[in-house]
Amino acid sequence: MRWDFATVIEHADVLAIGAVGTLRIFAICLVLGLGLGLPVGLGRYARNPWLRAPATAFVEFFRNTPVLVQIIWFFFALPILLPFQIGPLTAAVLGISLNSAAFSAEIYRGGIQSIERGQWDGARALGMSWLQAMRRVILPQAIKRMLPALANRAIEIFKMSTLASAVAYVELLQQGKLIASLYYNPIEVYTAVAAIFSVILWPLVQLSYWLERRLKGGE
């Protein structure tokens, strides 16, 4: 068995297009997933049952079903109910973002609940509204404690982005499949793809370790 990366390097441009696709879907899902998680997390924490029940149902459903099933559902099942088609990117973004929102909602909830009651009372005593207290006093403190968990979520979102290839979205793994099927060089292609993912993720993983260590040292 001889390894020969020549054809992979020759088609580096194909992989580069895939890498752009991977980074694009990662960026969209990161913003939507972590962004949507905050209102859902606040809803889970609300005293009003009309807010709390749907938020809880959303979190439980998306946490307890596989992401791939969600993506496939959005791609093959949902368009039947809609008057328009859903593209691979939209389906994958819906699946990954909603799934990540459910997971990050729990991170936000935990982070906010970890802030002592006195901080709330203090803020309210200064005449702040609930929203002001949340924005100015609670969230800035809570975010610091949530950072390691949120960094881990970002890593998971990056890894999940490969699932978009199941609905033929053009990302790194999908492009790798294309090259492997044209040149019969799966060993080199999939090794290269794995290495590219590792190289992109490595700094992110180190960052999460560093955040975790800093949190342990600071608390």
Binding site: G176, S198, L201
Partner: peptide, 14 residues
């Protein structure tokens, strides 16, 4: 640090 799907493809095809 690698996505599970990439690992699966590696073990199946490579």
């Amino acid at each position: 640090t690698t996505p599970p799907l990439v690992q699966l493809f590696w073990f199946y095809f490579a």
